[in-house]
């Protein structure tokens, strides 16, 4: 995996380049012969894909406002009336509120844990010489190579033996464990680029290692932490496979993606209907979309940096 890693290391330390808009670049004039035709061509393709990307999501959001009769009767049309009841049904009876709360709780701990433990390990690996340094580094990076499905069955029983199966702390620990390889890989590269002089000065001043880490190095690493933090935030919030297997016993404890998937399966049978499902999806998507639109540059940078594993 080392070779794949190389572009990541190259990009890592910078908060992944979000290239400046090319049109500001100065340059010599060019021919304008094919410009017009290509421009129409380019734009029509680009617009088609805009419809593709937004269409299904928009359809769900619009449908969430429709009475159930409209949804099955005229799925293509605009809503005949606005049915806010879908949202209350989704939030209470279909437990979407509960699932969202579970997700928030799990995320609060798993993200904090991942960032803290990941930064600690990465910092030590990056900036301290000790016996086994490389071995530990490769042990962590090696985890990037294994598909999670290989570990799934044994993991289930390891969790059970530890009494962690179907528990929230268990899920948090697993999220942390499976996020560590990439987090450490990314942050190690980042910590290595930080200047050493500050560190030395602090040491001479008698600051302890722990203090240097928390008060000096962590703040300096903020751009890197933000990138990987966004990456992990979305990764944990959207996680489906791990809770599906390791947190599947009690619907009360489902996290959001898992709960929505189960709503879809039992659709129509008990206390849910299509309108409520669409409302649930909308509830689940909106906060993420708001966050994304507010911080789209950082989000794009964080996630594409993440791709380069």
């Amino acid at each position: 995996m080392t070779a794949t890693a190389s572009p990541g290391t190259a990009d890592g330390p910078r908060p992944a380049p979000q290239g400046p808009a090319p049109r500001h670049r100065p340059g010599a004039g060019g021919g304008r012969s094919e410009g017009g035709v290509l421009n129409v061509f380019a734009h029509s393709f680009l617009i088609i894909w805009v419809v593709m990307a937004v269409g299904p999501v928009l359809w769900i959001v619009l449908s969430s406002l429709k009475p159930t009769g409209d949804i099955t009767g005229s799925p293509f049309g605009l809503p005949t009336g606005v049915e806010w009841e879908n949202f209350t049904t989704a939030w209470t009876e279909a437990s979407v509120g509960r699932y969202a709360l579970n997700s928030v709780i799990v995320l609060a701990f798993s993200l904090t844990g991942t960032m803290l433990l990941g930064a600690m390990a990465a910092y030590v690996i990056a900036r301290y010489e000790f016996f086994g340094n490389r071995a530990v580094h490769y042990l962590f990076i090696g985890g990037l190579m294994f598909p999670v499905f290989l570990a799934l069955v044994p993991l289930y029983f390891v969790m059970d033996n530890l009494g962690l199966l179907n528990t929230r702390p268990g899920l948090v620990l697993v999220y942390i464990g499976y996020s560590l390889p990439f987090t450490i890989f990314f942050l190690t590269a980042f910590f290595r680029t930080l200047p050493g002089a500050v560190h030395e000065a602090a040491t001479i001043d008698g600051a302890s290692h722990t203090r240097i880490f928390f008060q000096i190095m962590l703040p300096m690493a903020k751009p890197g932490l933000v990138s990987i933090g966004i990456f992990n935030f979305l990764g944990h919030w959207n996680q489906f496979v791990l809770p599906r297997v390791l947190n599947n016993a009690d619907e009360e404890n489902f996290v959001l993606p898992q709960g929505l998937a189960s709503l879809m399966v039992q659709q129509g049978s008990y206390d849910a209907n299509w309108g409520a499902l669409y409302a649930g999806l909308t509830i689940a998507m909106l906060p993420i979309l708001v966050v994304y639109l507010s911080f789209q540059r950082q989000v794009q940078a964080g996630l594409t940096a993440g791709a380069l594993k």
């Binding site: 009494g163 962690l164 179907n166 528990t167 929230r168 702390p169 268990g170 016993a249 009690d250 009360e252 404890n253």
Partner: peptide, 14 residues
Amino acid sequence: AMAALSACASGGGG
């Protein structure tokens, strides 16, 4: 003790 540990986590379920 073990049951309590997992119960506080799983919300008292099984």
